[in-house]
Amino acid sequence: MNTRHLVIAVAVALLMGALSLAFGRFGAYMVNAVAIAGIGALSLNLLIGYGGQISFAQGALLGVGAYTAGNISNAGGDGLLAILGAGVMGAIISALIGIPALRLRGLYFAIATLAAQAILEYLFKILDPITNGVSGLVIRPTTILGIPMTSDRSLVVPSLVILVIVWVAVSRLMRIDLGRSFLVLRESEIVAKGMGIDVAHAKILAFFASGFIAGLAGALAGFANRLASPEAFTLDLSADYIAMIIIGGLGTWTGPLIGAAFVVLLPEAIQRVGEAAGLSDILSPLRELAFGLLIILFLIFEPRGLTALLSRLKPRSLAVPAPGAVPATGESLPP
């Protein structure tokens, strides 16, 4: 199973690499954007799709990664060090965000993450020495292992390499005890506790792992944008990521990447179709509407997202289990 995932991940990365070469600088930028969004979506899918912990703070976590990487890189640190540092910082902040989850559940915890998002956004604006305030931190082109990352094309390489590593690592994670305990946690904390899973430990580790990956994505986004500014890491971005994992399919392996590609490319597709048809004035404002509509439609008709939709289109796929939309949890203990 794992070997298959590795092969698929590498194949997708190679395909994306080829696309970035075929479509010039703009293509490279788009591929990079999809890869970064894919990494961020894998991170959030780990937390929400597998761990069952809803978080609205993903945007701010990416910001943490971008600022950390920007500072390390601007201070002369190697890009790889900056990316790893961003991962560690993302993991720490994410674990802190997760602490209320030890007490709060479901929607109540989701509200707490909203607060975390707001606090981080505020910190981005006022921690001038680190974030350069509202002006935003200008990130100079970095070098990774001595290779200067000055063009959009050069940045595609680290993004795709990290995407493959994260993608395979998440696949592996779900096949070890820790990942399995996330799945139980998602269904019911009571069941998890009864099974002898250390719920607090597992939850914090879910946040830690997810935050590490979010930090990586944030670092790559910072390098791609060359600017980390408070306006780039708002609740809107968190919402985009939630849209990605819902559209792609919550708790699936391919879903995050499919959702990321969809959410990143759909606006551009609508725009280009609109231009070709001479309707861009009408279609452009519809992009936001289209997103909202899609999410609602997916939640109603295909909660498992595009992944399930695509596998249903697949003619030979008869062996797909038909999971219910809502986790029907048999509570094992009296309240």
Partner: peptide, 13 residues
């Protein structure tokens, strides 16, 4: 699934 994903990507680009 990947073929479909790739198709979406390619079409868009």
């Amino acid at each position: 699934r990947l073929r479909h994903a790739a198709a979406i990507l390619a079409l868009t680009l």
